[in-house]
């Protein structure tokens, strides 16, 4: 555990120094294909996963019964096997009532937990820090509210080169093809983080499956979401823009780097230092990117560094 922490830590420093993230996160190769939803890395995403499985198994169960009955009838009552129709069998209030009430009960058994989880996802109260996420055609900008730290996060160079028409580059040769960025979002584990999502031009949607968050970035309006990653789930998690936003909608991924709270604070300090040192580099790109967006000083919620 300790060593792992160290590794990430050192990586982060280098990452901060040279803004060349992807090269470092390369050892992650290609996520193997999966069939099912990810349980994710925090309570909300796990609850969503539970809900998903509940609905899934109910569907399977109902399907088994209903389709089973259909197939039985279809096999059992074949004309070719001389079946004679029971034409008197035309209606029965009793069965109608039965197959109305049973589904009602099944639905209730899903509606209650669903409503619970819904309320949970909406409860941003008590967030210890806020990150402002703004979607642009076609990149994301992240601002650690209450700090000067803000940066643009766009598709990494290697994916971008490979994704061009007849680039001749084999996507399989690119680590995390289309799912890696130049500047990943770095967040602490074990801290309730509130994300403030908005759009700079058209609607985008900030989606990180592992966090169970998908919030549309509506120009002119701010949407809130939150996560609180388990402290044992450090690592890199990837998502994509999930609302058609034009030509390069498929090419504005999201990469979240979850680190321990301590590492996060170091990283944040490092970022602020860099900004002071070279306001030219990172800062300028950001300011151009944020030209459209108002300043942040009035935004609430103290940053994690404050407590």
């Amino acid at each position: 555990m300790k060593t792992r922490k160290m590794k990430i830590h050192s990586r982060l420093l280098t990452a901060a120094a040279s803004g060349l993230a992807p090269a470092l996160f390369a050892p992650a190769a290609h996520a193997a294909w999966t069939l099912n939803l990810t349980p994710g890395i925090d309570q909300v995403s796990r609850d969503i996963y539970g809900l998903h499985m509940l609905a899934f198994w109910w569907s399977v169960g109902i399907a088994a019964v209903v389709f089973g009955f259909m197939i039985y009838s279809m096999v059992r009552f074949r004309h070719s096997k001389g079946a004679v129709p029971d034409t008197g069998l035309t209606h029965s209030t009793r069965v109608e009532v039965i197959w109305t009430t049973i589904p009602v009960l099944i639905l209730i058994s899903m509606a209650i937990p669903a409503a619970r989880v819904l309320v949970e996802t909406a409860d941003t109260a008590g967030a210890q820090m806020s990150i402002r996420v703004t979607g642009y055609q076609w990149r994301w900008t992240y601002e650690y509210v209450g700090t000067p730290v803000k940066f643009v996060s766009s598709l990494d160079r290697r994916s971008d080169a490979a994704r061009q028409l007849d680039s001749g580059i084999d996507p399989f040769s690119v680590p995390n093809y289309l799912l890696s960025v130049d500047h990943p979002l770095v967040v602490p584990a074990g801290v309730k983080v509130r994300v403030l999502v908005t759009g700079g031009d058209v609607i985008h949607s900030w989606w990180v499956p592992a966090l169970g968050i998908k919030k549309d970035a509506i120009p002119g309006y701010v949407n809130e979401a939150w996560f609180d990653v388990d402290t044992d789930k450090l690592g890199t998690y990837r998502g994509q823009c999930a609302e058609l936003c034009g030509r390069d909608h498929g090419f504005m991924p999201i990469v979240v780097q979850v680190v321990s709270k301590a590492d996060f604070e170091k990283w944040l300090a490092q970022q602020e230092a860099d900004l002071k040192k070279a306001p030219a580099t990172a800062a300028t790109t950001v300011t151009t990117a944020l030209a459209a967006a108002p300043a942040l000083d009035a935004a609430p919620a103290a940053p994690a560094t404050a407590n």
């Binding site: 403030l196 908005t198 701010v222 108002p294 942040l296 935004a299």
Partner: peptide, 18 residues
């Protein structure tokens, strides 16, 4: 009202349309 940060959209007023 939401643009003005009323109801559930307090943040709008603070962040975008002060």
């Amino acid at each position: 009202p939401w643009l003005g940060g009323e109801g559930t959209k307090v943040i709008n007023g603070l962040l975008l349309w002060r």
